[in-house]
Amino acid sequence: MAMLVLGIESSCDETGVALVEWEGATLPRLASHALHSQIAMHQAYGGVVPELASRDHIRRVLPLAQTVFDEAGKRLADVDVVAYTRGPGLAGALLVGAGVACALGAALNKPVLGVHHLEGHLLSPFLSADPPEFPFVALLVSGGHTQLMRVDGVGDYDMLGETIDDAAGEAFDKSAKLMGLPYPGGPWLAKLAEQGDAMAFKLPRPLLHSGDLDFSFAGLKTAVLTQAKKLGDELEARKADLAASTQAAIVEVLLKKSLSALRDTGLKRLVVAGGVGANRMLRQQLDAACAQRGVRVHYPELHLCTDNGAMIAMAAAMRLQAGMQRPTDVYAFDVKPRWPLYSLQESSQATEPVAS
């Protein structure tokens, strides 16, 4: 029997809506998706303003849903499950998506399912033209999270290492802000780095030789600040070099730790997911290093690296298909602004109610 999942993402500053469908044991496929980014709205403030983000989600979610249904040639009545991001994220923003999803579920008399935002990123490469196969090592580099894990199946995650302070995405964004680049800084820094010399400044590679798979990027940010102050009036002329050196430091740590995880686990497949996974230098170096080692690398499509509804619908569909979680017809809801990914494995998701 064919199943259709409506997914709603509203954890931060992107409003995403998507439809994913599948039949039997086939891999779920994306029917349609629509996304609105709030970047232009938040640029004036140099970062995300939570209250403004929540209000914009309210304005955008239903028109985006209409677009998705029109493009897929589907009706609301065709939906079998309504999925939404339950956490982690901004509490107010999460409540918008959860509220809309549960209201739709109640109106349609269809069950709802809360999804972990990071699991959405983790499983997003299954939406690509070259989906991975289990098991694999996953490098999850999304927002405030940088994690390496062994993935043996849906919901079967073994944490290998994670950031102990700033994540890679934060290192990109904070370093860019120190250089006076616009919000969001990461993509601007990466673009500017293409014009610079990555060897111009000797910046630290925190925990590169720690002997474990944990990450730390706070020291790198401090080093960038120190170097920017040393440059003084020369910063503008040397900004591309500083950007290139910063990017090189971050990418080297991500690359070496990923290769160590592959070596330690003996696996020959790597999945890279999250916004930083769109970084061109990271992809190039991972592709080259893994090709030498006979390792397959999988990424989400570029337009699905940032937060989006497709990854939420896909994660819900894969959990349902694997029997890892049941949707619920209890439409009272809560959200989890702080929700560690490892907790999915600690709890019995096949019986845990999604809404409470």
Score class of each variant (00 low, 15 high):
D197C: 10
F215K: 05
T222I: 08
P28G: 01
K221V: 03
L254T: 04
E162S: 10
G143Y: 01
D287M: 14
A291W: 09
L178Q: 01
D214Y: 07
S128H: 13
S142N: 07
S356T: 04
V272C: 13
S210H: 01
A218Q: 00
G275V: 13
L52G: 13
Q66G: 13
D307G: 05
L203W: 07
A223I: 02
A200Q: 14
G24D: 08
V17S: 12
A176K: 02
C290H: 12
A72P: 10
G105L: 14
V330N: 01
T226S: 15
E301Q: 14
K257F: 13
K257R: 14
S260P: 05
A168W: 09
V82M: 09
A53L: 08
L62I: 15
D214A: 06
L282D: 04
S10T: 06
V330Y: 02
H145P: 00
A101H: 14
R338V: 06
E252Q: 08
P182H: 07
H145L: 02
L127A: 04
G97P: 03
L320V: 09
E133V: 08
Q284E: 10
A83E: 06
L62S: 05
E234T: 15
G155F: 01
E194N: 04
W339T: 04
L122E: 06
L122A: 12
